[in-house]
């Protein structure tokens, strides 16, 4: 069922790109060419697309879950960072050079010729390589954000459950020393370099006698299984639980959802908020 509706959305997206002329690179480049023959069509396309979407966000704000039962994507709270700006500048440069962005590159695959296909292949290859480039950028910008060595930050939501931004294998002894017996990894491997992947962390954690649970939560695509796995891991833990993801936000969200109905929604929102995790948008789901 999910696939059928995804295909309907994808097809309608393709139809819109075709009808609007956005698969014609001359038109897209015309929009960016403010010093040449400027073509305003793209503004009409973007404006036209935002109208139904603005209504959809208003409807989503009033509903608990989507029609097919999963939670709506939470807003990305990581704010404006170096990745967002650098990535957008690189994307804008490539967009101008070829007049293609990911949607139209796919939509025009059948009639874009060899060069259209070459663009797509280069784009997909770069997408696979992107996590490494992002990690490099993080390393370059890290000194201005936090001094190395103070990276680990245990944020105890309750005496038996703490969340944290990404940890290193070297942080595990300190986590054990702090009394935690179970470590939950809520970050998908695709976001991070290999030495932080679930398997590597599991080996390091289990070598210390810690229980390790991998429960990758895809940003913006939290599933009911994620919540169930987190709840089961907390339930089964012999002592305090330490969960981490990129910022600790996803680990807080699954914790709150796992306790929906068991604790007052006000508390499930107020506790993570002390550490900067804003869960207000989940309130309808946290009422249980």
């Amino acid at each position: 069922m999910r696939v059928v509706f995804a295909a309907l959305a994808g097809g309608l997206f393709g139809l819109g790109l075709y009808l609007s002329g956005m698969t014609d690179t001359a038109r897209v480049q015309g929009w960016l060419d403010v010093f040449g023959q400027w073509d305003p069509t793209l503004a009409f396309v973007m404006g036209g697309a935002m109208l139904p979407m603005a209504v959809a966000w208003r409807i989503a704000a009033r509903r608990r879950v989507a029609v097919l039962g999963n939670a709506f994507p939470p807003p990305n709270r990581s704010g404006v960072d170096a990745r967002l700006v650098t990535g957008s500048v690189l994307f804008g440069a490539g967009w101008a050079l070829a007049g293609l962005c990911p949607g139209p590159a796919l939509a025009s695959l059948s009639y874009g010729g060899v060069n259209g296909a070459l663009f797509l292949i280069a784009m997909l290859a770069a997408m696979v390589a992107a996590p490494r480039a992002s990690a490099l950028l993080d390393r370059l910008t890290a000194p201005t954000r936090a001094p190395k060595g103070t990276a680990m930050d245990i944020r105890a939501l309750t005496p038996t459950y703490a969340v944290s931004p990404q940890i290193e294998p070297e942080d595990l002894p300190a986590i054990k020393a702090a009394g935690y017996t179970t470590v939950i990894d809520n970050r998908p491997d695709g976001e991070i370099p290999p030495h932080l992947h679930g398997d590597a962390m599991r080996a390091a954690a289990e070598a210390l006698g810690l229980t390790f649970v991998a429960n990758p939560v895809i940003g913006g695509a939290l599933t009911p299984e994620n919540v169930a796995v987190q709840a089961a891991a907390i339930e089964a833990a012999g002592g305090p639980v330490f969960a981490y993801c990129a910022s600790g936000n996803r680990s807080s969200v699954v914790w709150a959802l796992a306790h929906a109905g068991q604790m007052p929604a006000d508390e499930l929102i107020a506790i993570p908020a002390r550490f900067g995790y804003q869960l207000e948008h989940l309130r309808p789901m946290l009422r249980g």
């Binding site: 819109g16 036209g48 139904p52 029609v67 939670a71």
Partner: peptide, 24 residues
């Protein structure tokens, strides 16, 4: 072209709205 842009844009927006509200 602008009218077709608007029509195509509305299709894109409806696709995005359906993907959000149905598939979440």
């Amino acid at each position: 072209e602008w009218i077709w842009g608007l029509i195509g844009g509305l299709c894109i927006g409806c696709a995005a709205a359906a993907y959000l509200l149905v598939n979440g």
